[in-house]
Nucleic acid binder design. Structure first.
Lengths: 192, 192
DNA sequence: CTTGTCATGTAAAAGGTTACATGATTAG
DNA sequence: CTAATCATGTAACCTTTTACATGACAAG
């Protein structure tokens, strides 16, 4: 449903993109907004071109077809933002797992939690890199300021996630300590 | 695919649940792990019962059929956790919108951001309520400590999200201030 | 007596994944 | 000369949504 809008959002930034480039965005683990499989993106692009929301920019020597957004596409994007309700539903496989680790013994649970911490730490360092490179690659326009801001949010949320994961084993293993004593300051830090 | 595991995870807690009760969980806006539509849950339950992962507990006077998890269901749950890779892909409609607000004029953008803040504030107060009621409703077993911990994570992340949203208009409206100056401390706070 | 909550399902359509298929170019 | 990356697509299958259909019970 919203793959269309994710593609329009990416093309609205003014840089023409090919299906291949869009796929890089949609499969990047630091880009925590929209995921799509490669084949889905290609067929969606064809549908959107037929609908007049995007247009072919050029077919380069390498065989890549790049697309740009059309005025009709911009209209659709603005209409979506202003006149449709956001969908707050989420499917988060990795958090579902973290909610269910208690069914495992301590060793297996720690193993899973460690693996998740490793993943999130990688994400943090990739995000930091992207953020520090930002001013070299992009200008100070509204578009890029907006996008950079989202990177800061991802970074902060990954960091909260890591502190939480680091405390989770204590909660599962030491029933004497109240959960609030271990995690209460996570909330205070976030508000500060 | 993982709706099966979301249902198994819910039933693993030992409390028998009907399709209707499960639907309440899957459509609760504070439960930011797995969403499913009502009709999908009912047909999935029938499939899972046939597969022997869950069993009918009782059919009560009101017409509700409650289910319990079987030993085969617990095996499937543990196998999923320990021997399959977590799926880190996400589709977040509301964040996609926040990444695209720059295409709107200042008034419309502020409007959207305000609506999102209102939503997140509601979520925070619902989560706070759930957390403070927790010790009355649930015991101190591993299951409930694990689940309560997830509620603390949601609370902290909603709070980070709110501080970020509150700063977003400044980023979009005042190009003179570097984005890092506005959002840099979000990360520091999160790290503790 | 009517609205809201409880309670379950079917069927068609839309959205999304996986497997397969192909071929060019680039870097080591 | 071989592996990785670039580049696009089709077809079968699975998952999920939406619309529809039904009916009991409780509260105001």
């Amino acid at each position: 449903m919203a793959l269309k809008h994710a593609i329009l959002s990416a093309l609205s930034r003014g840089v023409p993109l090919s299906g291949y480039r869009l796929n890089n965005v949609f499969s990047d683990p630091t880009e925590r907004v929209w995921h799509a499989s490669a084949s889905q993106v290609y067929s969606e692009l064809i549908k959107m071109e037929r609908a007049g929301l995007i247009a072919v920019d050029e077919r380069n020597e390498r065989g890549a077809t790049t697309y740009v957004i059309t005025p009709a596409g911009m209209d659709e994007l603005r209409h979506w933002l202003s006149f449709t309700e956001p969908d707050h539903t989420i499917r988060d496989d990795s958090l579902l797992r973290m909610m269910t680790v208690w069914v495992l013994d301590e060793t297996a649970a720690r193993h899973l939690i460690e693996a998740e911490i490793t993943f999130q730490r990688k994400r943090v360092s990739m995000l930091r890199l992207k953020i520090s490179d930002y001013s070299e690659v992009r200008g100070n326009e509204r578009v890029w300021r907006n996008r950079l801001a989202v990177h800061y949010l991802w970074l902060a949320q990954a960091q909260v996630h890591i502190s939480w994961l680091e405390r989770l084993p204590r909660i599962l293993e030491d029933a004497a300590v109240p959960v609030g004593d271990v995690l209460g300051d996570l909330e205070l830090a976030a508000r500060g």
